[in-house]
Structure formats: structure tokens, C-alpha cells
Design a protein around this nucleic acid. Structure first.
Lengths: 352, 352
DNA sequence: TTTAGCACTCATTAGTTCCGAGTGCTAATT
DNA sequence: AATTAGCACTCGGAACTAATGAGTGCTAAA
């Protein structure tokens, strides 16, 4: 635990640096931190903080800048989360698209709301729910030997895919399909549908196997697609504006463009207990992110389904403002999605 | 019409500059263009070309660079479209996702294929078809007073939206809905569905109007959404790499981020008769694009539906290579989408 | 009409100086 | 023991200068 005065100084350095982006000198601190001591005293304290690795100087004749550890200490011990103003709340909400009941769209919109609000890049995932089950499967013929298969899950995910059949599609065939689907898939957890299950099913169909096989395989594909939680990234171009990325912004954007690591970024946030996680610089584990911070928050639908939403930006970001903003957005999302997709058991009497 | 030798010189300047990005001097040209004249002669010709506004010098002691008019002349009169190599064809094709029958996904994938292939940003639109009609509408209950409505059009566009009903959803209500939809919507052109049509229909329902109204309004929303052709932009971050955008790449990205102008960009390509259009620099009409070129190609599904796909990059791009590439991609898309969605009338006997 | 020759231009690079913000240390002060 | 005034020192950045050389336009000869 740092002595109080040193804490004050550290907090002042962090906050001032976040605001201006310029290294903070001892003179400047004198007026900022509410301390009635001379700049020399502050310099002594700063020397201590430097020795402890919490701040550093870009070069000998410059002021101090927080190190990664400094940010961490600030975030863990010193930061006071800001109250959200009413109009900020409104700004966040207004970006959300409540209308379409599609959770994928909602999360996409939420990401973009964050982009607009924060001027950073935002990342969001669609809900993944290990207990999700199949709500409905429809087959819609589009041509003699081609049909569209549509899958709807209990979490509101809708996936569709065209499927070419080996034999012409007759009303009879449609009925058969409908029967099979009703018996074998409705209410089935997504996790229970896999290649083996499909093959067993096909095998049991006897004469009908030939005509049904491509359709059932398509179902398997759709379930697969519905199980994977999608990751949306938006607002990357915002990052160009920040001078900390000056030349190699392209490098960061390329990194974010590759989708694989994004999954890691978000899923790794399972470790901590709290529902909001701040990762500063190299805490992100990826070299490309060593100058970036993420603030990731998990949302929940009822008790099972979860996803995450958050931002990526330079380590110099206004944590005390962003944390409550993201928390607020997450709460809205959780509430809205829970309202819609967990209504089954409740009586659900509210109107819009 | 320029004298032949001058044409050769212009072509050499354009091609050399496209390749290296450096201003081209008279000495260098001597060896590049197959001309057996001294650099002094070439200098004289260059002076002429400069006077005609086809080339310019960045500064007094530098070589020449094509002006926008120079590129235009080159593209219109001098350029020889390159033959695509077999492996280039494969590279383009391999990026396409044929599997899901969803044209929106296909076009998205096509855009990304272009991004990978060209290293520029790509833009693509989903098909818009004034003669498209409604193929199917399904209602899927998700909770007592909530249903998912799914719309499928003749062009394969699938849209869905959640809808909250005023009364509980009963099998009876579902049947009623199903009847109404079958009678009034199946086969109806998208353009015929509008607020007036919906209101007339609701009015004619008598006692059932109350329960049906929200559902029918949702249909109207879905038709609206299906009618608008979506615009996909991808690969923006590629543009950062090009030094012509050096500092203000952010400005361009911001411009591309706003979606409104994109529609203009693509739709404006209706003017010309040819199916591929090259717009150089300020020909794009937007100040933000004065250093950029677009190559846009239209695809067709059968005779009605059309959309566009193309690239955006610095004016210094390899037109002679890119034009055939994009043409090739467009052909594939046209063929594939036509195969799938224009099969109705034909006997459609091919297998995959 | 073409070409050799030459003076001229000017972006770029490297080298130099100067300035001042900010530091660390020492010695005096409380 | 803690604080402060004073001062020498460091070093990044700005401003200026000089040298370089690629490329030009022009003139006069072929």
C-alpha cells in the first residue's frame, strides 16, 4: 500500500496524462493534485514511484507517464468510477436497435453504440448457451430440387442454408421431413446434434434415407453455425486517430482483422469472477496489443447464456468513465435479451 | 488522338508508376518504352504530355506522374487487359463460399475474396430485383405473446424479425395467420407491399384485425428490409498501407464508414451501358475520394436482379490486371446466383 | 527532327546550433 | 526527519544551413 500522498500524486499523473496525453511534470502536479507542497517534494515522491515501476519518463528531460503497472494500480486502488449523466445514458441507449428480435443484430448494434460513444473499437459476441435447444426447423422449397432450411433456437438465433436435394421436392417429401424433424429435433439441445446423431438417424430411415440425407446434413450444419457464438468487431478505424499507434496502426488493424485471436480475447475473460474485466497492455497476452487496453463485460440471459461486449483502445483511456458506461450497456442488453428469451416460464405480461 | 510515340511514352509512364510508385524520369523511360530515341527527345514529348495535362511533376526536379486525365486516357485507349492466369482464377474462386445458399453471404464472401486478391477495399451489394416476389412467410412462436416472423423472397433473401402480439398465440391464431399470408402474400411482388396495402388488408379482417395487425406490420417491415439491397464494405484497413493516403487515411476510412455515400457510389454506376465501370479520382464526385479509384462491375441474376461488386483503392492501381479479375469474379457470381434462383422455369437437372 | 551538353531547380538528407522543460542533487530551512 | 530553494545537467525538438543529386528545360550543333 502506498502512502496517501504518493497515491494522490499517482492518481493525478494518471488522470492528467489520460486527459492530455502529455507527460506530466512536477510543477504541473503541484496545482493539479490538491497538495500544498513544493515541486521538489513532489519530485522526490515521483522518484519513488519511478523506482517502484509505476511511472516512467519517456526521456530524461520529460515529465512522467504511467507504466502499465501504474495504470493497474490506479484501476485497482485509486479509480473512482464516474457517475453516468442522464444524457450519456440516453446516448448509449439510442444506439441500440430494440426492434428486430434478433440477438445477433442487437449485439452488433450494441457494439456500434459503444464505438460511437467511446471512439474506440468495440467487440461483442452473440450469446452462447450450452443449454440452448432447437425451437423450430422449417423447409421452404425454392426450386424443384432445392430448398431453404431455416433453424430457430431457443435463444433466438436464426440460421438458414440452401440445400440441394437428390430427388425432386414433393409435398409428400415435405411432410416426411416435417415429421422427422418434429420427432427428432424439436426441443433437442444443440449440443446433442452431431454427425453421429445424424448418421444414426439417417440409417434408421430405411427407404427414405436417400431423399432425407442431404436435408438432415444441412440441419447439422445449421446447428453447428448456431452453436458458434459470432464475434463482431467494429470501429477499428477509430483507432487510427490515436497517436500512440502512430505508424503501426495498420499492424494492429491487421491483427484485429484476423478473427481467430478475437475469440481468445473474449473467452479468456472467463477467468475472473467479476463481470467486468480490464486488461491493460501486455495483460492481453498478444504482442500486438501491448499498447492497448480492453474493457470487457459479460452479459447474461437468464442463468445460462452468456456473451461479452467491450472495447479496445490505447492504454491511455478514461477507465473511470468507460467502466460504468460499459457496465450500463451490458445491463441493458442482459435485461432486454432476458425479457425476450426467458419469458417462457413467467407469465410475461408487460407491454412495450 | 495522340501520335503513336507519345502514346507509348504515356503508357510506359503509367505502367512504370503503377509498379513502383516513384515519379518516372526521361532516362528510365528510355529503357522501359521500346523506343530508340535519346532522353532529350523523350523529354520533349513529356513536355507535350505535360502541356496536355496528362502527366505532371510533383516538383521541378522530379520525374513525371500520371494525372487523373492521364490515367483516364490510359484506361480508355492504351490499356491491354491482362489475361488471368489459372492460379489467379483459382485464388479468386477459392475465396467464395458456395455452400450456404444465402446470396447475402455469397456477396459478402465475394467482397472478401476481392480484398484478399487485390489488397484493396472491396464493396459489394446484395441483389436488388424489382420483380422479386414473396416466396414464403413463416410464423414461429417463441413465447406466449411473441413470435418470430420469417420472410423468404424469390431471390433467396431471408429476413426475420421478432414480433410481440397483443393476444396470446394460439394454434388457431397461427392457422388464421397462415391462411391470410397464403392468400395475400405468397407470390406478391415486394414492391406491392406497403403501408397502404397492409392497412387495407387489416381493415378487411374484421374481428381478427386486432390480433393480426402487429404480425402484418412486421411483414411489412420485413419486406422493406428485403427490398433494400445491402451494401458490404470490407478490407478498409488494407488502404492504410498505401502511401498516397499517408496521413489522412483516417479521413477516407471515416468516409467509407458512413454508409450513405456508399449507396450513391454503387448505384451511380447505372449510367453507363457497359457492365464494368472505372472511376478515377474526382470522377467519384466525392472530395474524400479524389485520390481514389473505383472499379465497379455489375452482376445479373437472370434478367431482372442486379447488384454490383468492386474495389476502392488509390488511383495508382493496376487497372489492366484488376479489370479482368473483377470481371471474372462477377461472372462467377452471376452464374452461380442465376443457377440457383432462376431454376424455376428450366428443368434444372444438373448435379453438384 | 533529333541529340549532346549544360545550367538550373529543388526535395531530401545530414549536420549544427539553440532552447527550455524537467530532472536529480545538494545544502539550507523548518 | 521532512521540506524546500537553488542550480547544474540532460536531452528531445525546432530551426537553420550545407551538400547531394536526380531530373528538368533550353540552346546550339548534327
Amino acid at each position: 500500500m502506498l502512502p496517501q500522498r504518493r497515491q494522490k500524486i499517482l492518481a493525478a499523473i494518471v488522470e492528467q496524462y489520460i486527459e492530455t496525453g502529455e507527460p506530466v511534470g512536477s510543477k504541473a502536479l503541484q496545482s493539479i493534485a490538491g497538495l500544498d507542497v513544493s515541486s521538489a517534494t513532489i519530485r522526490n515522491e515521483m522518484a519513488e514511484l519511478t523506482a517502484q515501476g509505476l511511472i516512467t519518463q519517456p526521456h530524461t528531460s520529460a515529465g512522467r507517464v504511467p507504466t502499465q503497472a501504474g495504470y493497474r494500480y490506479y484501476v485497482d486502488n485509486l479509480m473512482k468510477p464516474a457517475e453516468l449523466e442522464e444524457n450519456e445514458r440516453r446516448r448509449i441507449e439510442s444506439g441500440l436497435d430494440y426492434r428486430s428480435g434478433d440477438p445477433e443484430q442487437l449485439l452488433q448494434a450494441a457494439g456500434e453504440a459503444l464505438v460511437d460513444f467511446t471512439n474506440f473499437a468495440a467487440i461483442s459476441t452473440t450469446p452462447s448457451d450450452e443449454h440452448a435447444f432447437i425451437k423450430n426447423i422449417e423447409m421452404v422449397p425454392v426450386s424443384p430440387k432445392m430448398a431453404m432450411i431455416v433453424l430457430l433456437t431457443s435463444t433466438g438465433i436464426l440460421k438458414s442454408k440452401a440445400c440441394r436435394t437428390d430427388v425432386p421436392i414433393t409435398p409428400d417429401l415435405q411432410d416426411t421431413f416435417s415429421d422427422i424433424v418434429r420427432k427428432n429435433f424439436f426441443g433437442t439441445p444443440l449440443s446433442d446434434v452431431n454427425t453421429v446423431m445424424i448418421q444414426t438417424l439417417v440409417a434408421s430411415l430405411g427407404a427414405k434415407a436417400l431423399s432425407m440425407s442431404p436435408l438432415l446434413v444441412t440441419i447439422s450444419d445449421l446447428v453447428e453455425a448456431a452453436s458458434v457464438s459470432e464475434i463482431n468487431l467494429s470501429g477499428q478505424s477509430n483507432l487510427l486517430g490515436y497517436k500512440e499507434y502512430n505508424d503501426n496502426a495498420g499492424q494492429l488493424l491487421d491483427f484485429l482483422h484476423r478473427e481467430e485471436p478475437l475469440g481468445m480475447l473474449v473467452s479468456a475473460s472467463g477467468d475472473s469472477d467479476s463481470d467486468i474485466e480490464i486488461r491493460i497492455g501486455s495483460e492481453n497476452r498478444y504482442k500486438e496489443l501491448e499498447n492497448s487496453s480492453m474493457i470487457i463485460s459479460k452479459y447474461k440471459i437468464g442463468d445460462n447464456a452468456t456473451g461479452a461486449i467491450g472495447i479496445i483502445g490505447p492504454t491511455r483511456m478514461n477507465y473511470s468513465k468507460l467502466v460504468p458506461s460499459i457496465k450500463y450497456l451490458t445491463d441493458i442488453i442482459s435485461k432486454f435479451l432476458s425479457d425476450v428469451y426467458e419469458e417462457e416460464s413467467s407469465s410475461g405480461e408487460e407491454d412495450s
